Simulated assay, not measured.
Amino acid sequence: MHLADKRNVLTPDALALVDAIARTGSFAGAARELGKVPSALTYSVRQLEDALDVLLFDRSARHAQLTAAGQELLHEGRRLLMELDAVANRVQRIATGWEAELTIAVDDAIARPVLYDLIAAFQAQRVESPSPVRPAQLGGPARTNSPPTRLRFRTEVMSGTWEALLAGHADLSIGTSANPPGPHILCEPIGILPWHFVVAPDHPLANAENKLSALEIARHRIITVGDTARQLAPRTIGVLPGQDVLTLPSLQAKFDAQLKGLGCGWLPEPLVRDAVQRGLLVVKDTFDERVSHFHYAWRNGPQPAGKALAWWLDQLRSEVTRKALLGT
């Protein structure tokens, strides 16, 4: 088959079809999701396989299991679909100045209440409807609505905030480290977040009188939150050689586990402040003092920032907002 013919079969619909079958685990599940009959999906997949001269699914498996070639098509197809979405978003942004969607990656340590306040303020804006003929030109008032940009948030941990930005999964990352991993990334400081080493009152370290050494801490299970990076090298902070580790999916889960005495570890000072005051957690001095230098970052593309991103960047320039994001 000629290259042009292969391009004709690798349509967005065909790629989305393979993705749906892989996600649902069956042709029937994908058919329900796409509103088609299973036989139509089977026919479409066979056409795609014949055109590419490969086998995409292992028919001997009980469920729809991708072959190695199918896995590669799924991986590259998802990337291509994301790029097509990005093109559509850029076209709409150029036409109206507002992005179709703005995705913001937020480190798990960032305070959520201020984010909700910012979302409310963003949605409270009133912008003119981008219609070809404005009502004002016909003698009536111009229609105003909330910004047309859909907001999407994703929680990341450590290197995950950078990876989301670099991979194009986020337009803005809040809570990154200081060093941008690419030349086309802009980065500004938010501030410094202190962490406390805390244990439950009945934990063996709770009654230790002196500053805890690395050797003393290493004898006890440490609780960590897993780095969400998949492609960048994930980071591990606070774990000592040979130490027993319990890894949890979020800081809130880590906080709850330490309240129950399941282990020890560092937590953001604002998160543990109330629990420490109520005697539910005990702060211990250690050989190491831990702070995080948080930043926010965004891609510096050839086009000016869309109106939604520009609004969020303007809010982040406020010292009051930056302090609130850290809970300080």
Rank of each mutant, 00 (worst) to 15 (best):
P141Q: 08
L102K: 00
T149K: 00
A111S: 07
A121M: 01
M158G: 02
V157S: 02
L84D: 09
V106C: 06
F122S: 07
A121E: 10
G97W: 09
A124F: 01
P135R: 13
T149Y: 08
D107Y: 00
T96M: 12
P141C: 02
T155F: 08
I110K: 05
Q125A: 02
V106P: 00
T144Q: 06
T96N: 08
P148S: 11
R90T: 09
N145P: 00
L84V: 15
V91D: 04
D107N: 12
V106G: 03
A121W: 07
P147D: 11
N145Q: 13
I119G: 06
V127Y: 01
A100V: 10
E99K: 10
V91W: 07
V106M: 12
A100L: 15
E101N: 12
Y116C: 02
L115R: 12
M158C: 05
G97E: 13
F122A: 12
R154Q: 11
E128S: 10
Q92Y: 06
T103P: 06
A105Q: 04
E99A: 12
G139R: 02
G97H: 04
L138G: 08
V133L: 11
R154C: 02
W98D: 03
L102N: 01
R150L: 07
A95T: 13
A88H: 12
P135D: 01
T144F: 13
L151D: 00
L118I: 13
Q123M: 12
P130S: 04
V114W: 03
Y116F: 01
V133P: 04
L115H: 11
R154D: 06
A142I: 10
A88K: 13
T103I: 07
Y116H: 10
M82D: 15
T155P: 00
L115P: 04
I94P: 00
D117E: 15
V114Y: 00
A120W: 04
L138D: 01
A109L: 10
A124L: 10
P113W: 08
E99F: 00
R112A: 14
S129W: 05
S129F: 06
N89F: 14
F153W: 06
P132I: 04
F122D: 05
E99N: 06
S146F: 01
R112F: 05
P130K: 06
E156W: 00
Q123P: 02
V157N: 10
Q123V: 11
A88D: 11
L151E: 10
F153K: 03
I104Q: 14
